[in-house]
Amino acid sequence: MPVGISGYAAYVPRLRIKREEYAKAWGSFAAAGVAEKSVMGYDEDVLTMAAKAAGRALDSSGVPRASITRFALASTSPPYREKLLSGTVLVGLGVPNEAFSSDHTSSTRAGTEALVAGFEHLGSNAAGKALVAVADAPAASMWDPIEHALGAGAAAFVLAADSLLAEFEGHASYASEHAGERFRPPEEDRIQDLGVRKFSESSFILNTTRAATALLTKLGRKPEEYAHVAIQQPDARAPSSVAAKLGFTDAQLAAGLVAPYLGDLGAASAPLALAAAFDVAKVGDRILVVSYGSGAGSDALSFKVVADRKTPWSVKAEAERRENIDYVQYLKIKGAIE
């Protein structure tokens, strides 16, 4: 019996800061291809974003909360170092306490990791239904150029074996050891990077292309059989290098390219790119999603759209719900100044 996605939704904070604000403050902006990025408000964190996206995904799918048997939450920026955060969101949503819940963190690959965990649950529980919520707002020092790209957002998906809008066709992964790129030491709430760009780029390309190639080989597919490809976006240019090496075109990448207007969404990057591809996909379209987590590893997942059922909470609609802030306001929100 096929399994897949029966509902999905996006949530993006309404605040935005443009690259020009950084340029006025610093004289430059280090996030390649990013025109602006999303910013959480004072009253938001990854739990509120996850709850918002998950509630919308449930409403979009029509799946009753009482029928959820698995809940997975993914984020690299949780508000607690030790606490079952999926339980907090689960209770707030009204999902049964008996649903098996799990937290996925420590890597920006966490979003697809949670999706794979949800599909594995359906593989062992044919009558089950899984809810996956991915929310992230990575943070870095204001003095570090890596901070310039960091945005915020969330996506959620309802996984089931019936009423599907997209069938899950399979997945593949690749992991390796690349120490020194994008890490967060103990007792730190900000990510760091040694700043060796070529080293980071080589790890990104190696892991993503090998995961994607493994999946294409496993499924016996070619890039031209996919209408859309959604790739992890630490900035707006990195996914183009991976797409080109795999044989995908800019046209196939376009729908899922969210970094130009939302920034680097961490663990939510690939999931929100997938949601953006679903927003425009037609019945029969195939979508390949490829995540990346520094350190390093990548997941590749393949979907085939089987129903023309869009969410009311599309990525585009969320992106258009916006309010611009200047750099001083941004610093206040981030707690850098009072």
Rank of each mutant, 00 (worst) to 15 (best):
F204Y: 15
A160C: 04
Y261G: 08
L73N: 02
P79D: 10
S176D: 15
S75L: 05
S28F: 14
L164F: 06
T208L: 12
H104Y: 15
E224P: 07
L219S: 11
Q192Y: 05
A72F: 01
S298Q: 08
G220K: 10
K129P: 00
S75N: 12
L150V: 04
V305P: 01
L159K: 00
A25P: 07
Y292M: 05
E188M: 07
G92C: 03
A319C: 11
L73A: 05
A51W: 06
L115W: 03
A51H: 09
H178N: 15
A296W: 08
V116S: 01
G87D: 14
V12Y: 06
E36K: 15
S107F: 02
A117T: 09
V158Q: 02
V315S: 08
K332S: 14
V289R: 03
A155L: 10
T249G: 11
K24L: 11
L58P: 01
A126F: 04
P78F: 15
V289G: 05
F199Y: 15
I146P: 00
R70F: 10
W143P: 00
T208Y: 04
A175E: 11
P79T: 14
P260I: 08
A270Q: 03
H228W: 13
R19L: 05
G4D: 02
A156E: 01
A53I: 11
L85R: 09
E120H: 02
A268S: 14
V132A: 02
K83V: 12
L15T: 10
L15N: 10
P64W: 08
Q252W: 09
R70K: 13
L216D: 01
P260Q: 06
V34D: 00
A137Q: 11
P79A: 14
G220Y: 13
R190E: 06
A133L: 03
L246C: 07
A230F: 05
A236D: 04
V46Y: 09
A300G: 05
D285M: 08
T311M: 03
R16A: 10
P239W: 02
Q252E: 13
F100S: 08
E82R: 10
T108G: 01
R56V: 01
L219A: 12
V196N: 11
M40W: 11
P223N: 12
P13I: 13
L122F: 00
A9N: 02
S67F: 08
G94P: 08
A50C: 06
F199L: 14
V116G: 00
E338L: 14
T217I: 03
A54K: 02
L331Q: 12
A32Q: 09
S6R: 00
Y42A: 14
V134H: 06
G4C: 05
S241F: 15
A10C: 11
S294N: 05
A152D: 05
P234L: 02
F168I: 00
V132T: 04
Q233P: 10
A30G: 12
G195K: 06
A127C: 03
S176G: 06
E113L: 09
F100M: 07
D189N: 14
F119W: 03
P186V: 13
L246A: 05
R14V: 15
T249N: 07
E20R: 07
A137Y: 03
